[in-house]
Measured scan of single mutants.
Amino acid sequence: MEVRTIKVFTTVDNINLHTQVVDMSMTYGQQFGPTYLDGADVTKIKPHNSHEGKTFYVLPNDDTLRVEAFEYYHTTDPSFLGRYMSALNHTKKWKYPQVNGLTSIKWADNNCYLATALLTLQQIELKFNPPALQDAYYRARAGEAANFCALILAYCNKTVGELGDVRETMSYLFQHANLDSCKRVLNVVCKTCGQQQTTLKGVEAVMYMGTLSYEQFKKGVQIPCTCGKQATKYLVQQESPFVMMSAPPAQYELKHGTFTCASEYTGNYQCGHYKHITSKETLYCIDGALLTKSSEYKGPITDVFYKENSYTTTIK
């Protein structure tokens, strides 16, 4: 009895394709271990004539594949690729409408935090270190965002349907971005203890939790000093293409032309909904596939993004 075979390709990165001759009487799992086709788990399936010449994702289970996976995804987590594939199996079914010149995501599976993050990423200057993220990001900007969303979920250790947080998501993504040249110098002034300067680099240099107003941050924000008295913390120097200011959701007025974009969060910790506000020729609110415009805006804002380049204080 002759062994019926077909020729397929296996890959971990969709760049390096490895030619395989597979036995049609055995499952993919018996031949390769966990195997995925377009995100779908085909591990328990036997090869079919229609699979001839198709590319299958496999887990990096030998040295060659491990090197290829690390170079593309910059992670050695053995569960990463499987999590990416199972997320992709959902995100490829989502709709990605162009809204006001940006790629958004039609609401499904509690994905409003991903839509808000995706919209924000198209408006701030950011370059990702893992080629996987950078490639998928370019495709997302062009309207094909399924891979990018699935990668975000995998890097953030999230599953489809789980509630997510924009600030946490951005923080994970910033860790995989090139923020080497970003720098922030802060000064804390206390009447009792004097003053202390701190220099922050990388992710810490672009994120701040405690106030939404970048102007206020430049002037000074009140913080408790270690001595128990009130101290003032203010920005001395900022070198970065953008800054992200966050605070627990509270009524906040966004003035046209003073910011790049913002995240609105309605609801409580267990259950809520994100919308995205962007400042173009007027203010726009993007909620999944829905767009509304207004000249002014007041609502429960939790993150505001500002364009920056270089700032030095005039406070002496």
Rank of each mutant, 00 (worst) to 15 (best):
E2G: 14
E2S: 09
R4D: 14
R4K: 13
K7Q: 10
V8K: 05
V8Q: 05
V8P: 02
F9W: 11
F9K: 12
T11I: 15
D13I: 09
D13N: 15
D13E: 15
I15P: 09
N16H: 10
H18C: 10
T19K: 10
T19R: 13
Q20L: 09
V22G: 09
V22W: 04
M24D: 07
M24S: 12
M24Y: 06
M26G: 13
T27P: 13
T27A: 13
T27G: 07
Y28P: 08
G29E: 11
Q30V: 10
Q31S: 12
G33S: 04
P34W: 15
P34D: 12
P34F: 15
T35F: 11
T35M: 09
T35V: 15
Y36S: 04
L37M: 11
L37C: 12
L37R: 13
D38T: 09
D38P: 06
G39S: 13
G39D: 08
A40W: 12
D41G: 00
T43V: 06
K44N: 11
I45C: 12
K46G: 11
P47M: 05
H48Y: 10
H48R: 13
N49E: 09
S50I: 14
S50Y: 11
K54Y: 13
L59T: 11
L59C: 13
N61D: 15
D62A: 07
D63G: 05
L65E: 06
L65W: 09
R66H: 11
V67H: 12
E68C: 05
E68W: 00
E68N: 09
A69Y: 14
A69M: 14
F70V: 11
F70S: 09
Y72I: 06
Y72V: 04
Y73G: 04
T75V: 12
D77S: 08
D77Q: 03
P78N: 10
P78W: 13
P78I: 03
S79Y: 11
F80N: 01
L81W: 09
L81A: 04
G82K: 15
Y84P: 07
N89Q: 15
N89K: 12
T91H: 06
K92F: 07
K92M: 13
W94M: 07
K95V: 15
K95A: 07
Y96T: 02
P97C: 11
V99R: 09
V99E: 11
N100Y: 12
N100E: 14
S104P: 00
I105V: 11
W107H: 07
W107D: 06
A108N: 03
D109K: 01
D109E: 10
D109R: 03
D109T: 08
N110R: 01
N110A: 05
N111R: 00
C112M: 04
A115I: 01
A115K: 00
T116R: 00
T116K: 09
A117P: 08
A117S: 07
A117E: 04
L118D: 08
L118P: 04
L118W: 06
L119H: 14
L119E: 01
I124Y: 01
I124E: 06
L126K: 04
L126E: 03
L126F: 15
N129F: 03
N129K: 14
N129L: 06
P130H: 06
P131N: 01
A132K: 00
A132V: 01
L133W: 02
Q134M: 06
D135Q: 08
A136G: 06
A136E: 12
A136F: 06
Y137H: 08
Y138I: 14
A140D: 05
A142P: 04
A142V: 13
G143M: 05
E144P: 01
A146P: 02
A146I: 01
F148G: 04
F148I: 06
A150M: 07
A150C: 09
L151N: 01
L151W: 03
I152E: 10
A154M: 09
A154R: 03
Y155F: 00
N157Y: 12
K158G: 05
K158R: 05
K158V: 01
V160L: 07
V160C: 08
V160M: 00
L163S: 06
L163G: 14
G164A: 03
D165L: 04
D165P: 02
V166I: 05
R167I: 03
M170I: 09
M170V: 06
S171G: 10
Y172W: 09
L173Y: 04
F174T: 00
H176G: 01
H176F: 13
H176T: 03
A177G: 03
D180P: 03
S181W: 11
C182D: 07
C182Y: 09
K183Y: 08
K183H: 10
K183F: 10
R184T: 05
R184H: 02
L186H: 01
K191Y: 11
T192I: 08
T192G: 11
T192P: 09
C193V: 07
C193I: 02
C193T: 02
G194N: 05
G194H: 00
G194R: 02
Q196S: 13
T198F: 14
T199P: 04
L200S: 07
K201W: 14
G202M: 02
G202N: 00
V203M: 10
V203P: 14
E204N: 12
E204F: 06
A205G: 03
A205W: 02
V206I: 09
V206T: 01
V206G: 02
M207Y: 08
Y208N: 08
Y208G: 05
Y208K: 04
M209A: 11
M209D: 05
G210D: 00
G210S: 08
T211R: 00
T211Y: 04
L212A: 06
S213L: 03
S213G: 01
Q216P: 01
Q216R: 06
K218P: 02
K219W: 08
K219I: 06
G220C: 01
G220S: 04
G220M: 05
V221P: 00
V221T: 05
V221D: 02
I223F: 10
P224A: 12
C225H: 08
T226E: 11
K229Q: 14
Y234T: 09
L235S: 02
L235Y: 00
L235D: 01
V236Q: 07
V236K: 04
Q237R: 10
Q238T: 01
Q238E: 03
Q238S: 02
E239G: 03
S240N: 04
P241M: 01
P241S: 08
V243L: 05
M244C: 02
M245T: 02
M245R: 04
S246I: 00
A247E: 07
A247V: 06
A247W: 02
P248N: 14
P248V: 15
P249C: 02
P249T: 08
P249G: 06
Q251W: 12
Q251F: 14
E253Y: 06
L254Q: 05
L254W: 00
L254T: 00
L254K: 00
K255V: 13
H256I: 15
G257E: 12
G257H: 08
F259D: 04
T260I: 15
A262K: 00
S263Q: 05
S263I: 15
E264S: 09
E264K: 00
Y265I: 04
Y265N: 12
G267E: 15
Y269D: 15
Q270S: 15
C271Y: 13
C271P: 07
H273Y: 01
H273R: 06
K275Y: 02
K275M: 12
K275I: 07
K275G: 05
H276C: 08
H276K: 01
S279L: 03
E281Y: 08
T282A: 13
I286C: 04
G288V: 00
A289H: 14
L290V: 15
L290G: 11
L291C: 15
T292V: 08
T292N: 10
T292S: 09
S294N: 09
S295D: 15
E296K: 09
P300A: 09
P300W: 15
D303W: 02
V304Q: 00
V304E: 04
Y306W: 05
E308N: 05
N309T: 15
S310E: 08
Y311C: 15
Y311M: 05
T312E: 07
T312D: 04
I315L: 15
I315N: 15
K316R: 15
K316F: 15
